Simulated scan of single mutants.
Amino acid sequence: MYFQVVTLALLALLPMVNPPTTATLLLGLSKGMSREHVRQQVNLAAIYLFCSLCICFFIGSSILELFSISIPGLRLAGGLIIGFIGFRMLFPAPTEANNVDINQSIAFVPLTMPSMCGPGTMALVISGAAQIAALPDEYSRFTLYSGMVTAFALMSLISWGVLKLADPVCKVLGATGIDAMTRIMGFLLVCMGMQFCINGIKEVAQDPAFHTQVIQQTTPTTENTPTP
């Protein structure tokens, strides 16, 4: 059962985390940074990813309930962040091109969140935790939880390896290639951010509670209706 949990969780996380997309984002954001600083950010991003996945799995639903945050709200917030970052990459300010902060930290935002551990990944991990909690007592909780944590560690290791490949790609592309890649990735990020927002709005529109609230607000009450 342990190996089944690890395999299934890893296969489910791979398309959601999507490390190659984050590696492309790293190429655009690391322009002007030293290679040592980029390697440090990659190492931190892998650690942050593992911690974020564990937090979402064990206490993610409690945090969302504590602050009354829904999954559609999480998607909308993530979409706005991704769209803002993409817009800055697509249309960089003239001052930013000359004054690059070589010590800028990009490990947590946006590499870990919302790129690798975005709303979709959080929703997947939180729903998986809810499904495990609903299983009968005959299933060993220690085996299930240890399998999930192992899958998170392997996912972080795979992401670390993919992000490490961004450094040799920078050498091949050069300054002109990195600038072109930055603008292309900026456009894709704007599209991804808008798609996240669209998905969040669709989920809100399909929520039965939303329809009930709209009907209650649009239906006139009998108290305000004048009697003949």
Rank of each mutant, 00 (worst) to 15 (best):
V190I: 15
L74S: 01
I158A: 14
G73Y: 06
S30G: 10
G186A: 08
L76D: 00
V5E: 00
D167F: 13
T212S: 06
V42H: 01
L80A: 14
V162W: 03
V169W: 08
F58H: 04
F50W: 04
A134S: 15
L26W: 04
F108L: 14
G193L: 08
G120V: 12
G28L: 08
P94R: 01
G79W: 09
A9I: 11
M155R: 08
G147Q: 04
S30E: 06
G128I: 06
S30L: 08
G83V: 10
V214H: 02
A123S: 14
F50I: 06
I85H: 01
I198M: 14
L66D: 02
M194A: 14
F87R: 03
L74R: 02
G177H: 13
G118M: 11
Y2G: 09
I71F: 13
M194Q: 06
G200K: 10
H37D: 00
R183V: 05
V6C: 10
F84R: 05
F87T: 05
G174L: 09
A180G: 14
F196I: 07
F84H: 03
S156G: 15
F84K: 03
V214M: 12
Q213H: 02
V38F: 05
F210P: 03
F87N: 00
L154F: 14
V169I: 15
T221V: 12
S52K: 03
E138C: 10
R35D: 06
N103A: 11
C197F: 15
F142K: 10
A153P: 05
R88G: 07
L66G: 03
I102P: 03
V204T: 11
L53V: 11
S52H: 05
T121S: 09
F187V: 12
T22V: 09
S105H: 08
T21P: 00
R75M: 13
G186Y: 09
M192P: 04
P110K: 03
S70K: 05
C51S: 07
L188M: 15
T112H: 05
V172Y: 15
V5I: 14
A23S: 06
K164A: 15
L76F: 12
F84I: 12
R35Q: 07
T225N: 00
P119Q: 11
T112N: 08
C191Q: 11
D179T: 14
I184G: 02
M116S: 07
W160D: 11
K31R: 07
P92N: 01
V190E: 01
F142N: 10
A123Q: 14
Q195R: 12
P119R: 12
T182N: 10
E65N: 09
F3G: 00
C51W: 02
L189I: 13
F187C: 11
P92E: 00
L29Y: 01
P114Q: 09
I81H: 03
E65M: 11
G120I: 13
N43G: 15
N98L: 09
F67D: 04
C54G: 09
H211I: 09
G147S: 07
C54L: 13
T222I: 14
G32I: 01
L8T: 15
M16Q: 08
T150G: 04
A151I: 10
T182F: 07
A12T: 10
F57P: 04
G32V: 01
